[in-house]
Write a protein that binds this DNA or RNA. Structure first.
Lengths: 194, 194
DNA sequence: CCACATCTTGGTCGATCGCCCAAAGTCTCT
DNA sequence: AGAGACTTTGGGCGATCGACCAAGATGTGG
């Protein structure tokens, strides 16, 4: 972001950001400390406040970056599918597959909670989610979902995926939502009064 | 639970449990401290460790109790509805209405995350969720959902509600999922290969 | 009325917290 | 080589943390 000329500082920054994202998942947002994140990143504790000013700001920036990356991966996989049903199924599958090795949705949830208490986090997260929903809505619209419903369907899909991922934390046997069939509800019948 | 003869001790216990549940919502699981919860409950800090042994155990017990109460309220409201579509709609509405005054789903989410790190919490939460899903499945089965699908639908409804509540934290304008219409997907067509 | 279990008080322990800063180190220019 | 900007070091500040405990208060059954 800043016009710093030194390469070393940037490496430290990214190391701290990565360590912070890891620790939020492992111990929870409120339990990440200056010293623990510095140790994980392999740098001295003082650097946390030199580069980010406060732990809160480091966590905010780290979560936003990691989530942006995840959204990129998910929508990338989605856009590789032409068929609507096939794409949605692969989206659910990728969450199931992602979990054991890299429980990224814990980071999503932690960030949601932090956003409910910290307006700065909320602002950062809002942007990420909005972009995710817009890309999802665009993909849906190109594949047969009526424009009027695309945004609504996108919000539903995003929320369902998060809820599914959340419940899987507790119970790995939770049946996956048949997203493809459910989304068909919108494309087909439409018999609403309001 | 225990055969303690004194009434005073029980009052202290319940006061601490209530204060703990409040603070988990307000500041997050990891940020609830011995002294803050004691102050909120109007008792001395030492009592936390006398009655519960540790902060972790207090939070575990408090969350489980609060969640049990919430499940009771939700399923109670549900079982007051005979019609399937009407009941599901009221379920979604009750979440929307509940939120501004008493964001209980933040407690749900906090507990989910804590459960992913603490087996004791996981055990307590698992029981609550299981009971919720069983009652929901029973209600669905009595109202036309095929028995073979009732459990699957119940899991889907529970996960969708949590996901919806989670996204509402960030964006109050998230459109509500048309649960009644979606659940109709199961009762009606059935064209799956696996 | 007195023993007795239960509950409460008030304080202390070592550890850890976020944050800060002066001094030293490391670069990139001119 | 010397100046100046950037980065790192290592220590230290007061505050707060979870946990613990001896002594006092409270209420109950004999």
């Amino acid at each position: 972001m800043e016009p710093t000329g030194n390469r070393r500082g940037q490496e430290t920054r990214t190391a701290l950001l990565g360590a912070a994202a890891e620790l939020v998942v492992e111990v929870g947002w409120g339990a990440v400390s200056t010293r623990s994140v510095a140790e994980r990143a392999g740098v001295r504790p003082g650097l946390v406040h030199y580069h980010f000013g406060s732990v809160r700001r480091l966590l905010t920036e780290a979560s936003a970056a990691a989530l942006e990356e995840m959204v990129e991966a998910l929508t990338g996989e989605l856009e590789a599918s032409d068929d609507l049903a096939h794409g949605l199924t692969r989206l659910v599958d990728s969450i199931v597959a992602l979990e054991p090795t890299h429980p990224l949705h814990l980071l999503v949830t932690e960030t949601y909670l932090a956003a409910s208490r910290d307006p700065e986090v909320a602002g950062a997260l809002r942007g990420v989610v909005r972009r995710m929903r817009e890309r999802l809505a665009g993909w849906l619209a190109e594949r047969g979902v009526p424009d009027a419903h695309a945004a609504e369907v996108a919000a539903f899909v995003a929320a369902t995926l998060d809820g599914f991922a959340l419940h899987r934390v507790l119970d790995a046997d939770v049946p996956a939502p048949p997203l493809a069939r459910l989304v068909g509800t919108w494309t087909g019948t439409e018999e609403e009064g309001s």
